[in-house]
Amino acid sequence: MQARQSGMMSLGSIIAANFAQATAPIVDLIYPPRCPLCGEGIAGHQGLCGPCWTELQIPGEPACAACQRPFGGSSVSEGALCAPCLSDRPRHDGIAAGTLYNAASRKLVLAFKHGRRIGMAPMLARLIAARLPPMEGDWLIMPVPLHRWRLWHRGYNQAALLAAELARLTDGTLIVDGLARTKATASLGGLGKKARGRMLSGAIAVQEREAALVKGANIVLVDDVLTSGATSDACVKVLKRAGAAKVVIACFARVMDEALDLRPQNITPGTDPDPGAT
Rank of each mutant, 00 (worst) to 15 (best):
Y31F: 06
A159T: 01
R34P: 02
A186F: 08
A125Q: 03
V247K: 03
P51L: 14
R254C: 03
C38G: 10
P33Y: 00
S75H: 00
L132F: 03
A43G: 09
G270V: 07
S187T: 15
R263Q: 12
T182D: 15
Q46A: 14
I26V: 15
C67Q: 03
S75K: 03
A66F: 01
L174I: 06
M120S: 07
T182W: 08
I267P: 00
R198L: 04
T227H: 10
A16S: 08
R126L: 06
S87R: 13
P33G: 12
R89Q: 13
A234Q: 01
A277I: 04
I219Q: 03
S6H: 12
R91G: 14
T182N: 14
L166E: 04
K215A: 13
S187A: 13
E208D: 00
C49E: 05
F252C: 10
G197A: 12
H114N: 14
C35K: 02
T170G: 04
T231A: 02
C67I: 10
Q21I: 00
T54Y: 14
D223M: 04
G189N: 06
H153A: 03
A121P: 05
V76F: 01
S77A: 08
D28W: 12
T182E: 14
I249M: 04
C35Y: 06
W152R: 11
T271G: 06
R126H: 14
G137M: 13
S75D: 05
I14W: 10
P84Q: 05
D177L: 07
Q158G: 06
A96T: 12
G216D: 11
A212V: 10
A80L: 06
L226W: 01
L200T: 08
D274Y: 08
C52N: 04
L11A: 15
L166N: 01
V109N: 02
G189I: 03
A20F: 10
V76S: 01
R131L: 12
E40Y: 08
A16E: 00
I175H: 12
R4E: 07
W53S: 09
P51G: 10
G41Y: 00
L179C: 07
A17F: 05
P264K: 05
L132M: 07
L29I: 10
K237F: 07
L146R: 07
A20N: 15
C85R: 01
R106Q: 13
R148T: 07
P59T: 08
